[in-house]
Design a protein around this nucleic acid. Sequence first.
DNA 1: ATACCGTTTAACCATTTGGTTAACAAATAT
DNA 2: ATATTTGTTAACCAAATGGTTAAACGGTAT
Lengths: 209, 209
Amino acid sequence: MVNTSATSETEARILEAATRIFRAKGRDGAKMQDIADEAGINKALLHYYFRSKDKLFEQVFRDSSAIFFSRLNEILQSDLELFTKIRRLCDAYITMTMENPFIPIFIIGEVNRNAESFITNIFSGNGIKPEFKSLEKQIAEEIRSGRIRPVRAEELLMNILGLCIFPIIAKPMMQHNMSLSDKEFNRIMDDRKKTIPAMIIDSIKKKNT
Amino acid sequence: MVNTSATSETEARILEAATRIFRAKGRDGAKMQDIADEAGINKALLHYYFRSKDKLFEQVFRDSSAIFFSRLNEILQSDLELFTKIRRLCDAYITMTMENPFIPIFIIGEVNRNAESFITNIFSGNGIKPEFKSLEKQIAEEIRSGRIRPVRAEELLMNILGLCIFPIIAKPMMQHNMSLSDKEFNRIMDDRKKTIPAMIIDSIKKKNT
DNA sequence: ATACCGTTTAACCATTTGGTTAACAAATAT
DNA sequence: ATATTTGTTAACCAAATGGTTAAACGGTAT
């Protein structure tokens, strides 16, 4: 045995290649031969390390999801003050999505195509499900102290994620409709790291009447 | 000849079936046999009416895109007052996306998978590209009159679409993470028809200081 | 009646694709 | 040294898939 750890070097190479191909082409669009080529190995090796396309896909999907959700968890569960938390979330999700827009597109598309059972199976077990209660508690505190007006934690998160992620995953349409160059688009998204949290905080902060 | 109009009944049936299958499974996931079965006809008929899978897909993709973009256009180019326009946009896009969440997921996914040339080709010709200038002009007016603070039309639209569409296309994740039943989720999205425009208008309205 | 033309089908074909097998190579253990 | 296990490959296979063909069907005109 060359490698005592769970994953050999080859296995890692396969996983990287599979991730790239699956994210770009989706489960059905990706061919095992594509992945083998991308990894620079024989197709049969894919089946040696991962039994089937399904198993390989599941692994890639799990990992991709974990990247996005674990970050959410991390920030949600931190003991940052609420407004800071909001700013961090926006910054993290814009940065992360800009660097890898394939991931949310991939997740949304695949979750949509696959049966409920598949999703439940994938999303359970690993620390993917965020500890949502902590945010709810924190918001309740802030409401009680009179700093913010009553809001649902769900809405707050929907707003943050929608504002940060959507324009990036819909980038081709946005650019086409609004005639934006890559440079302009990037600048706008960079601005939004500030404007989105400002807007969100303003929408929940109690105004002095 | 049984039918003088451009599209025979069978052709329409095929198109409907293809739309359902393509939206649900994506270009690669959809099989010609699936579509034939769904339409209740022989596979060869698909090729009789539409030369190839590619051609059939292109047609479906064009139509699906048109549904979403033509509505945007319609509202943008109306002579509604700005705040009303915002409310209309939110209502229209939440309603439309709730009724057919597959469409934006489908568009985003396919646009992402296909080459730039494909997109440009698809999006040009038919009235898909929204007349964006009219909104920009309207906003400029409102800024000059001092009713709203300076904002970019691009950001405004990104905000509206992100807030309205994203939570719905990411529904399975949202529901899973936040433990929301279908009923709760629907109620929240229905509320958002009001809360989103309120939030957006509030964010651009000039406050009396 | 029958020739004609658009529509529809069953059967077929070539290629692609996920997966297997058997043999070969390279470590590792005895 | 040599048997054994692990990693890797080329060749192969069966099923699925997009697409074609030739024949049949059903009106319509002659």
